[in-house]
Design a protein around this nucleic acid. Sequence first.
DNA 1: CGCCTGACGAAAC
DNA 2: GGTTTCGCCAGGC
Length: 129
Amino acid sequence: MATKKKSSGKLKSVRPSGKKDDNFFELVFEVARQIPKGRVTSYGAIAACLGAKSSSRMVGWAMNGAGRVKPKVPAHRVVNRLGILSGKHHFTPSGMMEKLLKKEGIKVKNDQVQDFKNVFWDPAESLRL
DNA sequence: CGCCTGACGAAAC
DNA sequence: GGTTTCGCCAGGC
């Protein structure tokens, strides 16, 4: 076998529309799906629940595919640790995230979740990992 | 193959 | 207490 490997570029990609065996990504999606209505959680909380609290960024990246996996992942229920809708710019339209949250009973003001700690849902506690 | 970017987080300043 | 930097890992160019 000697140096086979890819010459230039990885043939991995995010696998658009279908297939998603990425363990880490899948875990993030699964946890996100468990978020009860009217509740929100943070990227770091999910990451910590998975044992990768330092990789909170990867959680955000994982959410990048949230809208393309099935069943759909309520990424709008995931905000940053400050309760700010950090990912609203990735939704279409951008205000949909806030709209969905309000519709579920979550108060949002100025792109920020009000009473955040009150609606905060900790996967580590609910899932008891 | 290296550099930069990125939906975070915590620490340093 | 706001701003900046590092860490973390993956992917795009």
